[in-house]
Structure formats: structure tokens, C-alpha cells
Computed example of a mutant assay.
Amino acid sequence: MKVEYLSHERLPDFVAYCKKHKAEIDDSFLYDDHLANFQPNEENPTYILTNQEGELIAAASLIISDYHRRGRKARFRIFHSEVENIESYNLLMQEMVKQTTGLDEVFLFVPFANDKLAKFMEQLKFTAERYTFLLVRGDEAVPEFTVPEGFEIRPYRLGVDEEAWCTVRNAGFANLKGSETPQTPDMVAKMMANNDYIEGASLIFYHKGRPVGVIRGSVDEYEDAPIMNIGPIVILPEYQGKGLGRILLRYLLHFAKQISYDRTILCVNSENERAKALYIQEGFKQVEGVTCYTFQL
């Protein structure tokens, strides 16, 4: 077996490999629009493993964006081998570690159903840090709601509301595993400029002019069909427990139906029991679960 940095010539093989195996692993960054303009570089260091015939049999690729560097954590886009032995993972891991200067850890999500990959991660000394559930809501009717007096929900405005968004998101997620790293206004603007942006689906909840909550809906795909991905959903800590998250969620669910999204999807950490209970009450059903495995560098 031979491990090498992904070249431009092998890029089509890498993309084909990702599409072939994405159903077995966390495919959050393996959709067609993510792979269409993919290039291996400092933000996306990528290695492949080939057999004696030169066929691609394993691949590993990290995502090291500005956000990940700020948090000193990099996420795997893919870490997978068709050869079911630890050697192939070891060979890839040895090369990937060389690309992580300045970082403290790397992590990936492994579906509960993929026992084999979980065992390989444990052999590589990855540790199960947390568990995340995927919830889907079908075409059920959305309950009505009333926005309390003094409160207002407004669409996010590009170039205007980045600071307000950060204020809410960073305060609300300060202690949420996996999201502790603060976002900057530039990061928010870049997120809103992505191809998954839906006009009018990013919202800010205000109380007497103060931003107290945010929610975002974006283009996604589940079971080969379009779906609206909801997240983040954040309410400032001092405003929690007042039903505002439920109102914000119902507002976006109504909007989703108006623009012909019959289904919505979201993720929630296992320790965030109150949020998960809310989503279940609002018609979401758990369909999948993943384990976040981390490796300390």
C-alpha cells in the first residue's frame, strides 16, 4: 500500500471514493456541492492510500478553516478505508498528524451503525467525547404561536447583523461541547454567503431592540431528497425557559412550508436534554445517532 498527498490528477478518484462511501460515514461535508469545487490545500489537507494496482482504497481529509484554527480543533471530512485493517488507518493518520501544527485535537463523527469504524478509531486511541442525534420532522401541520409584546422576529441582514448574530450565538453556545469556539462577524458573513443560504430563513429574535435569539435554515439533503437543515437555534441564557425557542422554531417551520420544504432536519447533543425534548414535542423524530471521536495531538 502507498500513501500520498492528493494530487490534481487523482482528484476525480477521491471525489468518486467519497460519493461511493458517504452512506457509511458522516456525510455532512460530502454532498455534491461540497465536492464540486473541492481542492486539497492548507484548509483541506488530504491523503489517499492506493494498492499495488494504483487503485484508491482509502482516504483521509481534514477541514481546517479559520473557525477550526481558532478552536485549535480540526474535523475530518472523511476518514475511511475499504481495507478493513488498522494498518491503512495508521498510514493515513501518520500523514494527517503532520498537517496539524498549531492544533490540539482532530475529531470525526461515526454513525452508531458503523461498529467497525468505531473500533478502528478506538484502536487509534480516539476517545468518544459526545453523542449527537439527528432528528427529522415530516409534513405535519405546524402549531400556531404568538410573539410576546415587546418581542420581534426579523430576517438577518447581510452586512448589518453579523455582530448581533455573534453576540447571541457565542453567549448561548459558550458551554456547548463542539461549539464553544466563538464566531466572528466575518465568519458569520462567510456562512451566510454559502451555497446553502436560503433568503429569509436566517432570523434574529429581538426584545425591545436587543438581540436575544437566532435561528437559521439552510439547504440540505436527506435520503436523496431536499430538506431544510435547522441550526443553530440559540436563545440568550437569561431569556431561556420562557418559550422563546419554541416560538422561533415554529416561526421557521411555518416559513419552511411557505417555500415548499415539507421536511426539516436538525442535530442536537445528547447532553442538551431540554432542547431535544422541545424538538420531540414539536414533531421531530430521532432517525440517526453519531459518536464524536476525538484524538489529542
Rank of each mutant, 00 (worst) to 15 (best):
E9F: 04
P12R: 03
D13P: 09
D13C: 13
V15S: 01
Y17Q: 04
C18S: 06
K19S: 08
K19F: 05
H21Y: 14
D26F: 03
L30R: 08
Y31Q: 15
D32L: 02
D33E: 14
H34E: 07
L35E: 03
L35I: 06
A36I: 08
E43N: 10
P45W: 08
T46N: 01
Y47K: 05
I48D: 00
L56D: 04
L56H: 03
I57T: 04
I63F: 03
Y67R: 02
Y67D: 08
R70P: 07
R72G: 01
A74G: 02
A74N: 04
R75H: 12
R75Q: 14
F76T: 01
R77H: 03
R77C: 07
I78T: 11
S81G: 01
E82Y: 09
V83M: 10
E84C: 04
N85C: 06
N85V: 01
I86E: 13
E87V: 02
S88W: 02
N90R: 15
N90F: 03
L91G: 00
L91S: 07
M93F: 09
Q94V: 07
M96C: 08
G102V: 12
G102I: 13
V106N: 09
F107I: 07
L108I: 00
F109E: 09
V110G: 00
F112T: 09
F112G: 04
D115N: 08
K116E: 13
K116A: 14
L117I: 05
A118M: 07
K119N: 14
E122G: 08
L134V: 11
V136K: 06
G138C: 02
G138W: 03
F145T: 10
I153H: 11
P155S: 14
R157N: 11
R157A: 09
L158M: 14
V160T: 10
V168G: 00
A171F: 01
K177M: 10
K177A: 07
K177E: 13
E180T: 05
Q183K: 05
T184H: 05
P185M: 03
P185C: 09
P185T: 07
D186R: 09
K190Q: 15
N195F: 04
E199Q: 14
A201D: 04
I215K: 08
I215C: 06
G217Q: 13
S218V: 05
V219E: 10
D220R: 08
D220H: 13
Y222I: 09
P226D: 10
M228P: 06
M228I: 08
M228L: 14
I230P: 06
P232H: 04
I233E: 03
I233T: 10
I235E: 02
I235H: 06
L236R: 13
L236A: 11
I247F: 08
L249H: 05
Y251Q: 15
L252E: 02
L252V: 05
H254I: 12
H254F: 09
K257R: 14
Q258C: 12
I265C: 12
L266N: 07
E273R: 14
A275F: 00
K276N: 03
E282H: 06
E282G: 11
F284W: 01
V287H: 07
V287D: 00
V290G: 00
T291S: 07
Y293H: 05
Y293T: 00
Y293D: 00
Q296A: 11
Q296G: 02
